[in-house]
Design a binder for these strands. Structure first.
Lengths: 170, 170
DNA sequence: TAAGATTGACCAATCAATCTTC
DNA sequence: GAAGATTGATTGGTCAATCTTA
């Protein structure tokens, strides 16, 4: 169909505003949101093969990285960037599946310490290699090494500038 | 095969795994997740001043960018990257507040077309400038221009590689 | 009084099932 | 039968209130 068939359609008068809706700052932010959504889809697909949600995996990983494979509930919540009640629910799930367990915290009877179980560590050990493969294939391989490096450097500086940690308490 | 110089030193039996937990590919991905969380916090704070959730704003913006300030439900859902039922609920909210309205779709009586109302456009017009200011201050100003440009270029290529659109139907 | 953790009520999304129209 | 949209049940999180211990 030739374009002439639309040529006579009366123009709407809000075209000046349209520029604001397409401001590059808006579209740049959109890029990060879309990249994030795509990345989450890739990661979730891997985790799902091990019966894990993304937040379950994050929790297991935080525990695995901590001294003694353990963290107090409050510290875990801070690392996850979640509320303490949300963390309570995640740990409930993990404990129900035997991937983590609560034990009393020495010297503070108000607190619980969450410990990664052997089963939890095994689950993580099964998941991580698949995850690394997926990351390699989906995000690293498609980008020229130097561009990938620039992306990571930019993300690091952005993360530091945004200080998500500082906003958690707000 | 060169033998490790640590081969005879007794070690905790998970020390080999520790390296895997700190694999740079994992921490790089973590950077994007943290930057995203921080960005969402910044954006949400602005939207909240206008009584909008992030997904409300996204919806209004998609409508504003579309010809006739309108989209069919299915197309809107695709653009938002949400399920059609999730989109139904968002539009229910927006319609309840008078920011959008449903009208019958010409030539297909199964379908609804969502239209941005004047009120919705006004809300958007109030929100966007504040949003742009917040983005400028929180993400653009803190980064050297060339690093910001590299970040955006990397994000664009990553987004294209991940093709979030292609994964929505999966 | 405040800190750590949990619970109940709620909110925003998902999936599976359904209804209408193509 | 398939596509567009909605609904009911469920999931995964939040906030406000509560309980216990410091």
């Amino acid at each position: 169909m030739p374009k002439s068939c639309h040529a006579d359609i009366p123009r709407v008068n809000y075209s000046a505003a349209m520029d604001a809706w397409d401001d590059p700052r808006l579209t740049d932010v959109g890029l990060l949101l879309e990249a994030h959504a795509g990345l989450i889809a890739v990661l979730s697909r891997v985790h799902a093969r091990h019966g894990l949600a993304g937040s379950d995996f994050d929790t297991l990983l935080r525990l695995a990285r901590s001294p003694g494979r353990a963290l107090r509930m409050t510290d875990l919540a801070a690392q996850l960037g979640l509320s303490t009640s949300g963390t309570t629910r995640i740990v409930d799930r993990l404990e129900g599946r035997g991937l983590a367990r609560r034990k009393a915290t020495a010297a503070d009877r108000r607190s619980w310490t969450v410990v990664l179980t052997a089963t939890g560590e095994r689950t993580l050990r099964d998941d991580v290699p698949e995850l690394l493969t997926a990351i390699q294939r989906a995000v690293i391989d498609p980008l020229p090494p130097e561009r990938y490096a620039a992306l990571v450097a930019g993300l690091r500086q952005l993360r530091d500038a945004l200080r998500p940690d500082a906003t958690i308490g707000s």
